[in-house]
Design a protein around this nucleic acid. Structure first.
Length: 621
RNA sequence: GCCGCCGUAGCUCAGUCGGUAGAGCGGCUGAUUCGUAAUCAGCAGGUCACGGGUUCGAUUCCCGCCGGCGGCUCCA
């Protein structure tokens, strides 16, 4: 007998039509609702036919123990054939159900029962706490094996890990014994990973910045964790997206697009979802339910399943910018741009022939991620996590990775493999509140190609399951902006001038005429710079020069060019250069263009996201 | 999700020991045309998040709810 136990806020079912094995039922059983309920989905199996009474007894025992543990108010027994591939005959099944119902009722519990052998529509809301989803295998006869999968157990297993620091000289030191005095950032990461944080309860500064700069805002008209992006924020987001996509296409990935929602009932997906706690948005379409993807994995797995692949074609890379991924994080976990329910993330899957090839790919992708972090201009920490056994076989590889970074990194070793991967790296940043957030990550997956039936034909003509790398070179795009803003805020605290990287600055050059009579000349300059592919705008308002400069500074404009009689006469530009603490420098137009072009080299470009005349711009908040 | 704190004009905030509100910025109008971080004056903006309750009267007190932030939990 298989039992799936769900602790739910409510369940509601409606009997729709009979199957061939339907029992006759009174009217009141055709539709029922239970609240604060432990729902027991039960499938009676062939093996139970040998001893139905024993199955009933053990079933009651299991349901009762969970019922007490979760403190539910009532039980809903729900015949659910789909739990087992080898069902008992209907007569035995009905006997077992009656036995369970009467037995539990006899112990004084409030019991409801859904009818056997009917097609039923049902709706339930799982509470989602650690014990709210449990499955039990009840075996009659001598074998008395219990199966128990739950978040709580998962968390326990995950905790069984050891922490080390690996330095560029190849020394592996237990983290507890490591001298962090020269590695404050690594210490912050380690503390965060192992102890959480004890820092003061403050709002992360990027939230204020993202609003003040009219980049991103909360959208009260949506579900929490779904944000509103203003033109400047949208431009930044697009540039990040285009850049990471460009990097991956250049690297040889094939870009694809896959659906954002998937059928709960699809057998392969079901298997995968069973392994992870429910954290999905659910979408209804007619009578079916779909979940919104939390990464591009599903679409790419299903595509990979149908592909014919030769070993000659490996490594093979599929890429999608998941615009969007959805994760229904608990409401209390949401935070600004750091933790969202709807976010954008590049997701690449690389199929590899063997571990040698996988390591080589992993290394390449690790380098791509290093390049990405450099382009963002933020400081980052490196953590590499391994299954212990895998680490022992790959110590030299680990040393190669740390050497590339050139400073110590955090190593976590898991006793056993609970997840589907044997190793992964994570590049993370520490924010102003000393919390860590992962950006880039790559994992070596040894499990899912088999689960999803992805295979290639090897040299000898046999079908094999490849290894698969999951790569998110930038990590969540939204989170990248969080990283930049937090980083710039911390810079400002140290007395430096915060600014966005030039390639991401909505305005790169602001023209500020000294007086109205210089406006015409500025218009000409504006057109000339625009043609050169510079994001340039013009403050044509009626306020004073000083005020215009103040406002440009507060907007973090990297180059502010004041244009008056002197500039018109000499044909040069006097520019406040933000990166050089607002120092005024003289440029010719050509020099300014060349300077900017050099600074944004190899980065994508988008035109100014707002009207070029400031007087034409609305306020967004 | 649980617990705590918060929600007053477009923004940042003050205020009302219960008698339906005020500043600065922004916006609009006018004056000023200015050489590197805030020119001056006037005007228009508010169901005090939302829904109930108590009260002669609620923005204020109580309950609920929505949203935000933090802590816990979580983070495939």
């Amino acid at each position: 007998m298989k039992v799936l136990l769900i602790h739910a806020d409510y369940i509601e079912y409606k009997a729709k039509s009979k199957t061939r094995v339907a029992e006759e039922i009174p009217e009141e059983l055709k539709s029922q609702r239970g609240e604060e309920v432990l729902v027991a989905f039960v499938a009676v199996e062939k093996a139970d036919e040998a001893a139905p009474e024993e199955a009933v007894g053990k079933g009651i025992e299991e349901i009762e123990s969970v019922f007490k543990e979760v403190k539910a108010k009532e039980v809903m027994l729900y015949p659910y054939a789909h739990l087992s591939p080898s069902l008992s005959n209907p007569e035995v099944a009905v006997r077992v159900f009656r036995g369970l119902e009467e037995g539990l009722r006899g112990k004084g519990y409030a019991v409801k029962r859904a009818p056997f052998g009917w097609y039923k529509a049902f709706e339930l809301r799982c509470k989602g706490h650690p014990l709210s989803e449990l499955s039990r295998q009840i075996t009659v006869g001598e074998a008395k094996e219990k199966e128990r999968v739950s978040k709580a157990v998962a968390a326990e297993k995950k905790l069984r890990s050891e922490w080390y620091i690996l330095d560029p000289e190849g020394r592996l030191t237990p983290a507890k014994e490591f001298d962090f005095s020269k590695e404050p950032g690594l210490r912050t990461l380690y503390n965060y990973e192992t102890a959480g944080t004890r820092s003061a309860a403050k709002e992360p500064p990027h939230i204020k910045l993202m609003k003040e700069h009219e980049l991103v805002d909360h959208e009260p008209g949506s579900d929490p964790g779904n944000l509103r992006w203003y033109p400047k924020g949208t431009m930044i987001k697009r540039l990040l997206e285009e850049h990471v996509t460009g990097i991956l296409l250049n690297y040889g990935a094939m870009e694809v697009e896959t659906p954002i929602m998937y059928d709960f009932a699809h057998p392969n997906l079901r298997k995968y979802l069973d392994r992870f706690p429910a954290k999905q948005y659910v979408v209804r379409s007619d009578e079916k339910e779909y979940f919104l993807r939390f990464a591009a994995c599903f679409g790419q797995y299903l595509m990979g399943h149908d592909m014919t692949i030769s070993y000659r074609q490996l490594p093979l890379r599929l890429y999608e910018l998941t615009h969007y991924s959805f994760r229904r994080e608990q409401s209390g976990e949401l935070s600004g741009l750091k933790r969202l329910r709807t976010f954008t993330m590049p997701d690449m899957h690389t199929l590899c022939r063997d571990m040698d090839q996988a390591r080589k790919e992993f290394l390449n992708q690790y380098k791509l991620a290093m390049g990405w972090m450099r382009d963002l201009g933020v400081e980052y920490q490196v953590a590499i996590r391994f299954i212990k056994e895998f680490y022992e076989q790959n110590e030299e590889f680990a040393k190669t990775l740390v050497k590339l970074i050139g400073r110590p990194i955090l190593i976590e070793l898991w006793e056993e493999r609970f997840f589907y991967f044997v190793m992964k790296f994570e590049f993370s940043i520490n924010d102003a509140l000393e919390k860590a957030a992962t950006l880039s990550t790559v994992q070596i997956d040894v499990e899912n190609t088999e689960r999803f039936g992805i295979s290639y034909v090897d040299e000898d003509g046999s079908k094999k399951h490849p290894l698969m790398l999951h790569a998110s070179i930038s990590g969540g795009i939204d989170r990248n902006l969080y990283a930049i803003l937090e980083h710039e805020w911390m810079k400002a605290q140290k007395g430096e001038r915060p600014m966005l990287p030039l390639w991401l600055s909505p305005t790169q050059v602001r023209l500020v005429p000294v007086a109205e009579e210089h406006l015409g000349y500025c218009e000409g300059l504006l057109a000339e710079l625009e043609v050169q592919g510079i994001r340039v705008d013009l403050d044509d308002g009626s306020s004073t020069l000083e005020k215009k400069i103040r406002e440009a500074e507060m907007e973090w404009v990297p180059y502010i060019a004041v244009v008056g009689g002197k500039e018109i006469e000499s044909g040069t530009l006097t520019v406040r250069v933000r990166r050089e603490k607002g120092k005024q420098k003289k440029f010719t137009k050509e020099e300014l263009v060349a300077t900017i072009k050099e600074e944004v080299r190899a980065k994508p470009f988008r035109r100014l996201p707002l009207p070029s005349r400031l007087s034409q711009r609305p306020t967004f908040r």
